[in-house]
Structure formats: C-alpha cells, structure tokens
C-alpha cells in the first residue's frame, strides 16, 4: 500500500471529524480550544476512552465479549482509594495500586471464564455483578469521596494524562506486536484450532489478555475517580455503561487498522470520540441530544462498514460513467 493511501486512510476520520467539529463550533461563534480547560477536557477524554477501548478490544478481537471491564475499574479504584486515604499516600501510589488490583481482578475474571467454560458474555455478566456487590459492600454503599484531598485531585493534568496515554499505546504496541505472546495472540485470533495444533496454549494466552485488560481498566478507574473526586457505587450492571463509550473508537480503530497499526487506530478512534465529547461541552449540548447524536454516529459508521463494498461500487461506477 502506498504511503499516501496509508496516511489518508489513517488520518481521514479524525481529520474530517476535527474539521466538522471546528466548523460547527465556528458557526455558533464558539472556539473549540478556547482555554486550557478545553484542552484538559479533550486529553482526559482521550485517556479515558483509549484505555477502555484497549481493554475491550484485547478480548473482543478474540471473540470474548467482556461486560465486566467497568466493574473491574470500579472495584480496583475503590480498593486503591481506600488504601491511599488510609495511609495518606499520593496519586502515583493510587495509580499503581489501581493498575495492580485491576490486573488481579482481570486475571480472576479470566480464570473464572477458562474454568467454567461458559460463554464469555454470561461469565462476564456474573463477574460484573459480583465485583459491583463487592465494591458496594466494601464502602457500605457510600462509595469513596476524596473531594477534600487536593493531592489526589491535582493529578489529572494534561502532562500526566499524556504520559499515561503514551505508556498505554507503547505497551500495547510492544506487547501485542513484538513479543511471543503477541504473535500467539494473533495466531489464535486468525485460527484457534490451527494455532493450538501448532503448540500454542490458548488458556495462558486468554488469562494474560484478561490481566492486561484489567490493568488498563484499573488505570481508567483511577483517572475517572481523580477527575471528579468521588467514586459512585453501581449495582445491577450499572458499571457496564463505560464500556459503551469504547464501541465507536473500536470500530474506527478497526477501520484505521487496515491502513496502519490497529493500536494506533484505537488511539485515533479515541481522539475522534474525544473531539465529539468536546463539541458537546463547548456547545453545552443536552444529554438527550448527545445520546441521539452518538447513537446515530455509531449506527451510520456500522452501516458504512457493513456496506462498504456497495458504497465504493457506487463511486467506482460513477467514475467509470464520467
């Protein structure tokens, strides 16, 4: 594939979205990036969405739909926040603890899946309920508040969030593109039976995937908690909702992956999603309109992906006619 086509395919969606968002804001007389807070909102959204997208994509690409990712973020951030508040530790300690606990809970989630051999959707729903209940019990239902802890609230700055994003992308690229685990992961993705026959062990591979996804969700839980100063409890699958923010960037990432690295695609998908979020903020779009627009964008993109051949065919015919 030529470099020009690669670049066009990779950057088309985020650039078109940026132009569209900028035009909409300009038509309303609003600057997209007027203050540093707008940049912070944008970067924070990239960090949140990219971490959830990585976590979801790792397992979904292998056919494992994991509904428990939100509950892993919830439980790991609750435990790390409780420890940090009790021992009067700082935000870096909380971030590390969140990642460690996230990895442990992800591993447990994966271990249950490979042990009971039930469909991953069912197992992950059960795990989500269990983790939500555990977080509720640990906090007596009150959640955790650290609105008074300026130290923890001060972490969510542009440089800190950028560092987390860069480390996450590098980790994804190195682990999944340059390690034996990553090659085996790809082999299992393209043909599990053949891969297993060649000696690849699918259970350890799945467990590592769940562990990495859990670690990403631990980091996402930390960012979410230190942004608003509270961790609200969720019950009855209330923790599932963060997962939905990853769908659009994941599909965009899949599309971009055809032209470049799919991990870079997920990141650019997160950038696209963050631009749309910033548009909602700058124009103070009501939540009902926001939900309708987000759903329409997702549906339109899926329609395009599923009918790409037909749509391209239409353009090709037109070109030939000309």
């Amino acid at each position: 594939m030529k470099l020009g086509k690669k670049l066009t395919g990779t950057l088309a969606i985020p650039v078109i979205t940026l132009l569209a968002v900028w035009l909409i804001c300009s038509s309303k007389g609003v600057a997209l990036f007027e203050t540093q807070l707008n940049i912070l909102t944008f970067v924070r959204a990239i960090a949140n969405v990219s971490l959830v997208t990585f976590a979801l994509a790792i397992n979904l690409n292998s056919g494992r739909f994991d509904f428990s990712v939100g509950s892993v973020a919830l439980l790991s951030s609750v435990i790390s926040a409780k420890i940090v508040l009790a021992l009067n530790l700082g935000p870096v300690a909380m971030l590390l603890l969140s990642i460690v606990f996230g990895a442990i809970f992800g591993l447990i989630s994966g271990a249950v899946y490979v042990s009971v051999k039930l469909p991953p959707i069912i197992v992950s729903l059960a795990i989500a309920l269990f983790y939500e209940g555990l977080a509720f019990a640990l906090t007596g239902g009150h959640g955790v508040s650290f609105a008074n802890s300026a130290n923890l609230l001060s972490f969510s700055t542009i440089p800190n969030l950028l560092i987390i994003i860069v480390i996450a992308v590098l980790f994804m690229v190195v682990v999944f593109d340059h390690t034996r685990f990553g090659y085996e992961y790809k082999a299992l993705q393209s043909g599990q039976k053949v891969a297993v026959n060649t000696g690849i062990k699918e259970i350890p591979n799945a467990l590592i995937c769940y562990t990495i996804a859990g670690a990403f969700m631990g980091a996402q839980g930390f960012i979410s908690a230190t942004t608003n100063g509270t961790i609200q409890m969720s019950l009855n699958f209330g923790s599932i909702s963060p997962m939905f923010m990853a769908f659009l960037p994941m599909f965009i990432g899949g599309f971009i992956g055809r032209f470049s690295n799919d991990k870079m695609g997920y990141l650019l998908g997160a950038v696209t999603s963050a631009l749309i979020s910033l548009l909602y903020v700058r124009l103070n779009v009501s939540s009902s309109v926001q939900q309708i627009v987000s759903a329409l964008l997702l549906v339109c993109f899926l329609i395009y992906l599923n009918n790409e051949g037909v749509i391209r065919g239409l353009f090709v015919r037109k070109e030939r006619a000309v």
Binding site: L37, M245, Y280, V281, S286, S287
Partner: peptide, 22 residues
C-alpha cells in the same frame, strides 16, 4: 452563567461541570 443537568457520568458531562465551575 452556566447550567448542567443529567447524570451521564461520561467525559462530556464531566467536561460541562468543569466548564461551569472553572
């Protein structure tokens, strides 16, 4: 000066709250 409502708990919601408070 500013108004936010709903309980979306997403990036846009937090962004709107931060925009009002800032």
């Amino acid at each position: 000066v500013g108004y936010v409502a709903g309980y979306d708990f997403d990036d846009a919601w937090f962004g709107k709250l931060a925009a009002v408070a800032n």
